[in-house]
């Protein structure tokens, strides 16, 4: 999993049927210090994260495991948690 910030939303009426009703959020991956890391991507939101919230997300096929029919839900990134607090131990450098 990785940390990211929710920076936007995507509206798509025409999409795979299993994604009807799912929210598609644009997220910017962050490192443990909260700095931008890499390119933004789109993730399906299974926990109802809001704008500006810091979340953690899972990628690859595992992203579909939160759905009722994981074998027929074409997603490769899903927000699976909203972060309250991050603690980085000082000797992590």
């Amino acid at each position: 999993m990785n940390i990211a910030k929710v920076i936007g939303t995507i509206w798509a009426t025409v999409k795979d049927d299993h994604l009807q009703g799912s929210k598609l959020q644009i997220i910017q991956p962050l490192n443990e210090k909260g700095e931008k890391m890499g390119q933004p991507l789109t993730a399906v939101d299974t926990v109802g994260a809001g704008q500006n919230e810091v979340v953690f997300y899972v990628t690859s096929r595992e992203a579909a495991l939160g759905f009722p029919e994981p074998l027929l839900t074409p997603v490769d990134a899903a927000i699976v948690g909203i972060i309250d607090r991050v603690e980085v131990y000082s000797n992590s450098e």
Partner: peptide, 16 residues
Amino acid sequence: MAIVDRLDVEVPESEW
């Protein structure tokens, strides 16, 4: 798996 109708980026860079 989706056709995008609209895309909104609401968090300005300054707030990151």
